[in-house]
Design a protein around this nucleic acid. Structure first.
Length: 263
DNA sequence: AAATCCGCCAACCGCAAGACT
DNA sequence: TAGTCTTGCGGTTGGCGGATT
């Protein structure tokens, strides 16, 4: 086990005197930290270090818990949906990693930051432009994000498809999940819309009992022109024509109003 | 088979803000 | 009110492992 001891600075000397450990955590240390948090809860990280017998700084304990030991930490590859969300949120907030992470349950700011640095900055280098340049932002918004959406759609493997679009000047989607009830005159069921996707759930006793789902995307140019919401849908079991009939202009208008009310 | 490169990720650092004394 | 401590955030680094030469 590699244990480094910082030297030179006053803090470093003090840490050295106290035998503060650095570097990768051991299983034993993890166990101690998990047990301590289970009993005393999160927070008071310096106390954790002091009273649990860990030779680690409070900061180190906090980081280890938040990024690795927390039970709700989600591991594994960043999904397409998550990638899309990261790109979108970063275009709004910049390097506010913790704020972005709040919208990706189970993901840590560190993970998102790493994703950005390893994938996104690499892309910028390949395009030979600065990651903060308008050129790159445009490439992201008009090329990369739409491609991601296409891949997300393709992953849902539609059998039949039909498309409707409507403009919603001034409508802005945020990142929470919204729900809208379809116009009862035209359909029954619930539509839930998130930043990158939408789903409709039709009750089995309705005339349209086949399962259908929507994929939609939110296009915002970030300018004062407002933003557009574009929704397309497909039926998984055929019947696309009948379903498409649900989506006449009135129903679209109704949905638009519902979304505007909620946002 | 060895050397080098590269991507990924855990962990550290400095700084700032808020809480506490 | 000032000084100190604690916590949280964003930037950066270092090491590991797989891919390539």
């Amino acid at each position: 086990m590699d244990v480094k001891v910082k030297g030179g600075s006053a803090t470093g000397v003090r840490e050295e005197e106290m035998g503060i450990r650095k570097g990768p955590w051991t299983v034993e240390e993890d166990t101690i930290l998990v047990n301590y948090v289970a009993v005393h809860g999160e927070g008071r990280w310096n106390s954790v270090a002091r009273f649990a017998g860990l030779k680690r700084t409070g900061k180190s304990c906090r980081l280890r818990w938040l990024n690795y030991l927390r039970p709700d930490v989600r591991r594994g590859n960043i999904t397409l949906q998550e990638q899309l969300l990261i790109l979108d949120l970063h275009s709004r907030w910049g390097n506010r990693w913790s704020k972005i992470a709040q919208h990706l349950p189970g993901r840590t700011d560190n993970e998102i930051k790493n994703y950005w640095r390893t994938r996104v900055i690499k892309q910028a280098k390949q395009l030979n432009c600065d990651v903060n340049s308008k050129q790159f932002r445009d490439a992201m918004r008009y090329v990369w994000m739409p491609r991601l959406l296409e891949r997300i759609k393709a992953a849902s493997q539609p059998i039949t498809s039909a498309h409707k679009q409507f403009d919603s000047t001034g409508l802005q989607l945020h990142h929470q999940q919204y729900t809208a009830t379809l116009n009862p005159n035209y359909a029954c069921g619930n539509l839930s819309v998130s930043e990158s996707s939408a789903e409709i759930h039709v009750p089995s006793n309705s005339d349209y009992s086949e399962s259908c789902e929507f994929s939609g995307h939110h296009v915002s140019d970030g300018q004062e022109n407002g933003s557009d919401l574009s929704l397309s849908f497909h039926s998984q079991q055929g019947g696309g024509d009948s379903l498409e009939n649900l989506w006449n202009d009135e129903n679209m208008w109704f949905l638009q109003q519902q979304l505007c009310d909620e946002l």
